[in-house]
Simulated assay, not measured.
Amino acid sequence: MKVLISGASIAGPALAYWLHRYGFEVTVVERAPRLRPGGQAVDFKGATHFAVLERMGILDEVRRRRTGTTDTVFVDENDQELAVARGEFTGGDLEILRGDLSEILYERTAANCEYLFGDSISALHETADGVEVTFELAPSRTFDLVVGADGIHSRVRKLAFGPEQDYVKHLGHYYCVAGASPWSGEGSRERQVAHGHNTPGRLAVSGGSKAQQLYMFASPELGYSRDDIEAQREIVRRAYAGVRWQVPRMLEEMKEFDDFYLDSISQVRMDGRYTRGRAALVGDSAYGNTLGGFGTGLAVVGAYVLAGELKLAQGNYKIAYAQYDEIMKRYAKIAGNSNAGRFLAPRTATGIKLRNWFLNSRMFALMTKYADKAANDIDLRDYEAH
């Protein structure tokens, strides 16, 4: 059975790993010309996430390449401490750069799965026997199934389900990550400290000179080309014009950073149906909530469940998809209610004070404990035992 996966970041290669292991013929198409290195840190938390990584045989490698736990200290213009977000909250139990995790997954699948870099899907036409796929560059081909693992702005979701605006809700903020993290790689596991400064509707975080930067700011939906990095840099510069603290230095350094990513903080809302016909969605394309804290864990668990259900159904995608929808509809609720922008970049001075109070309170510890419990709220089947 031939399966095409769109997206080679996290969910795509994770799904490719399991599908090949279960005897499927897998092709992965990726719009970028190569794997994207570096990027923001992603994390795993709890026994469920660790169980999937261990069954994939990559848990030890992820631990070896983990980043250092980073506490974020919120300060005023004079660097006086106001509150602290502990790294255990922002980075889970195990944190790794997105690019490093993507590389690990690619290395486990490249020899057995076909990868088409620098290309994307332009059209899908489902027939009684499969899905005829038209690519931007490669010749058209037919696959039995097509899976979108291509993020919040999923091309597969657009082609198989409908326009992005029908499924993606803008949550009122944008975020930008600029610069490669200096804390990645073996031997970088010591606790680190980054400093963040708020003004109403804006947050700037820096680990120091030349270190990775995070910007988060309130804004209605913006129109810009996702391929025009200079235009995106200008959006950030305008958003932070007049902000003091370390921001002028950060904006100057940002000009020199090759690693730059800007996007909206948005939530995907699929009403519990991540499949349609022969198409399926996994990861952020299905249940993404930007910076919600569960995206990477949901991606690897979702990939594990989708591949496992296809194995149990012996390729009967209608049965497998129904089971996948049912299982992930319940588990994906953990990503449904968070809004990182509203929490980290409150729109008012009063909101900033309340956030700082909350970070220093016992209620924050209770919320963290609840989140850890939610990350494990799934009956994880052992598909290889069936």
Rank of each mutant, 00 (worst) to 15 (best):
V42I: 14
V42N: 07
D43N: 15
G46T: 11
T48E: 14
H49Y: 12
A51W: 09
A51Y: 12
V52M: 13
L53H: 03
E54A: 09
E54F: 01
E54H: 11
M56Q: 04
I58G: 00
L59Y: 04
D60I: 13
E61H: 04
R63I: 02
R64N: 06
R64I: 04
R65C: 02
R65F: 11
R66V: 12
T67A: 13
T67N: 12
T67E: 05
G68S: 09
T69W: 07
T70K: 08
T70N: 07
T70F: 07
D71I: 04
D71Y: 03
D71T: 08
T72R: 04
V73D: 03
V73K: 02
F74T: 12
F74P: 06
V75K: 06
V75D: 04
V75M: 11
D76T: 08
D76G: 04
D76S: 03
D76W: 12
E77M: 05
N78L: 12
N78W: 06
D79N: 09
D79R: 01
D79A: 06
Q80I: 11
V84G: 00
V84A: 00
A85N: 12
R86A: 13
G87Q: 02
F89Y: 12
F89E: 11
T90K: 04
T90M: 05
G91W: 03
G92L: 11
D93Q: 05
L94R: 04
L94V: 04
E95Q: 03
E95A: 07
I96F: 01
I96W: 01
L97N: 05
L97C: 11
L97P: 02
R98T: 14
G99T: 10
G99M: 07
L101G: 03
L101S: 03
L101A: 06
L105S: 01
Y106H: 15
E107L: 10
A110L: 06
A110C: 08
A110V: 14
A111H: 13
N112W: 12
N112R: 15
N112F: 12
C113L: 11
C113I: 07
L116M: 15
F117H: 02
F117N: 00
F117S: 00
F117A: 01
F117W: 09
G118S: 06
D119I: 11
S122W: 00
A123Y: 00
L124R: 00
L124F: 01
H125Q: 13
H125N: 15
E126W: 02
E126S: 02
T127W: 08
T127G: 14
T127H: 13
A128T: 13
A128R: 09
A128W: 11
